[in-house]
């Protein structure tokens, strides 16, 4: 029971803080786009007509990298750097689930861009996010580095290009310097780490080792179900999200042929020689 009261206390405190932060310059907004994808543990099956993967009756969850992004934004809020965390998602009505999940984790607001069942591609998403960045005026946009379904790894980069903001991809550590209005990001690159310092507003895409996402409390999950979401359509924003790339066919990788058991070292050597491996 103790937990309950303390939870309510902090909830109201946060509300009051928002009200006192009336000066716009003081508020520090973080925009976090989240994507609903097939759960990481599910075995992916290709549709028989090769148009895509089977999504009907498949367990869906928040893209793990986006979860990391949400967690990072919430940690920024808890550390006092950010005043508001806004979660955004594009897609049919079912994506509200992912937005609510982020709200349950600790995001303040949710925006749902209703696109129906239309197939979305990174460029379209980046255009929508650009419009949102112009209207919401976030100081930071934190994204997952890629979605685990299409593995495009493009949205953050395209968004940075469209907005002409500095970007740091594959972040494994983020330090905000509010006084200088800059952010220091450590990136994971081939063979080491790279540290960038950039002026805000900026775009950051998260890598796997940035943090460990928390689990939402059940109580917050129930609360998030009642949260008001701002619903907009791409038409409202005046954005064309039509696809520029056509998927010709989606196919399963070739099945691997089984290995054989060898009894002796000689046989191994023989086989390796046969396949010209030694």
């Amino acid at each position: 029971m103790d937990d309950d009261t303390s939870d309510f206390g902090s909830f109201y405190e946060a509300d009051n803080e928002d009200e006192t932060n009336t000066i716009i310059n003081m508020s520090y907004k973080v925009l976090v786009p989240v994507k609903r994808v097939i759960d990481y543990a599910v075995k992916i099956r290709v549709r028989p007509d090769k148009t895509g993967v089977e999504t009907a009756n498949v367990k869906m969850s928040v893209n793990p990298f986006d979860e990391i992004a949400v967690e990072e934004a919430i940690r920024m809020k808890e550390a006092g750097f950010a005043s508001e965390v806004v979660a955004v998602s594009l897609g049919p009505k079912t994506v509200q689930e992912t937005i609510r999940n982020s709200i349950a984790m600790g995001a303040d607001k949710g925006i749902h861009i209703e696109t129906g069942t239309a197939d979305l591609q990174p460029l379209g998403v980046a255009k929508v996010l650009k419009k949102l960045a112009e209207t919401e005026k976030p100081n930071l946009i934190i994204l997952g580095k890629q979605a685990i379904d299409d593995d495009a790894n493009q949205t953050a980069q395209m968004l940075a290009g469209l907005l002409n903001w500095p970007q740091a991809t594959f972040a494994s550590k983020i330090e905000v310097d509010k006084a200088n209005n800059s952010v220091k990001v450590t990136r994971e690159i081939d063979g080491g780490l790279e540290t960038l310092s950039m002026k805000m507003p900026a775009i950051i895409s998260c890598d796997l080792r940035l943090n460990e996402p928390r689990y939402a409390k059940l109580q917050n999950i129930m609360k998030s179900k009642k949260a008001e979401l701002k619903v907009q359509t791409p038409q409202d924003l005046g954005v064309d999200i039509s696809n520029k790339i056509k998927t010709i066919s989606v196919e399963e990788p070739a099945k691997r042929s089984g290995g054989i058991k060898v009894d002796s070292v000689d046989q191994i050597v023989q086989n390796l020689k046969k396949h010209a491996l030694i």
């Binding site: 990481y40 685990i148 990788p253 070739a254 099945k255």
Partner: peptide, 25 residues
Amino acid sequence: HRFHKYRTLKKAYDPEFQKINDQFD
């Protein structure tokens, strides 16, 4: 759960696992 998720993602994307990634089962 956290560990399982981390390992699965690491296996899927880390360069360390690129060589065995081509074996799909």
